[in-house]
């Protein structure tokens, strides 16, 4: 994770489809209903993962672009490296989940995340989140860093996920500066 010295800023990588008519001036807000941490501007902290994301999901125009930006994480919840933040986050998810269950509501991870994103984070002054996403290899591509194949004695393949797949979501543009193109027309 690259930090800007003497600040709370982290370098983030934002992947989008290649645009033949010009590059973006700002990141695109993710409004997908599948966005785990709610609507926001999503970045990877590793360039490598931003490329995987492009290869897997951002090839609609035949290639993808990777942008770079500085994200001020001063009021972000760092669930990856800050112990207090991680256990608070875990505790809040448990509490929200138990509350919904106690009222007889169907509880899914997505519903809990949406419930928190809609009603809590902004009220609590949390402007973004640093989060360790699931290390899946969607297309089973070999040689990817996070999916080293370990051959055990019985020859069964096992995956050793030894690298965190860290994402940052910023809930507003205010926390993002110096956003610019980093890698263009990749495939």
């Amino acid at each position: 994770m690259q930090r800007i010295p003497d600040t709370k800023k982290i370098i983030g990588y934002h992947t989008q489809e290649y645009r033949p008519d010009g590059v973006l001036e700002n990141p695109i807000i993710c409004t997908s209903i599948d966005a785990w941490l709610g609507k926001g501007y999503y970045f990877w902290v590793d360039e490598e993962f931003s490329k995987y994301w492009g290869e897997d999901f951002k090839m609609a125009t035949g290639s993808y672009d990777v942008y770079i930006g500085e994200i001020d994480t001063e009021d972000f919840l760092n669930t990856v490296f800050d112990e207090k933040h991680y256990f608070a986050f875990k505790n809040w998810i448990d509490k929200a989940s138990n509350h919904l269950k106690s009222l007889g509501k169907v509880v899914t991870l997505k519903r809990v995340h949406e419930f928190l994103a809609d009603n809590f984070w902004n009220e609590m002054g949390i402007k973004g989140m640093i989060y360790d996403d699931m290390p899946i290899n969607t297309n089973r591509k070999p040689g990817r860093k996070y999916s080293v194949v370990v051959h055990s004695e019985d020859k069964k393949h096992k995956f050793f996920y030894y690298i965190k797949r860290i994402q940052i979501v910023s809930y507003s543009l205010e926390n993002i500066s110096n956003f610019t193109i980093h890698l263009e027309e990749q495939n």
Binding site: K84, A88, F115
Partner: peptide
């Protein structure tokens, strides 16, 4: 910088405001 102790209290305060009706409204 986030103060987790204060945030814990704030979280509980918000959560307790979500009665059954209010939760259903949000759903």
């Amino acid at each position: 910088m986030l103060n987790i102790n204060k945030l814990n209290a704030k979280f509980d305060e918000i959560l307790s405001s979500f009665t059954e009706d209010k939760v259903q409204q949000w759903i």
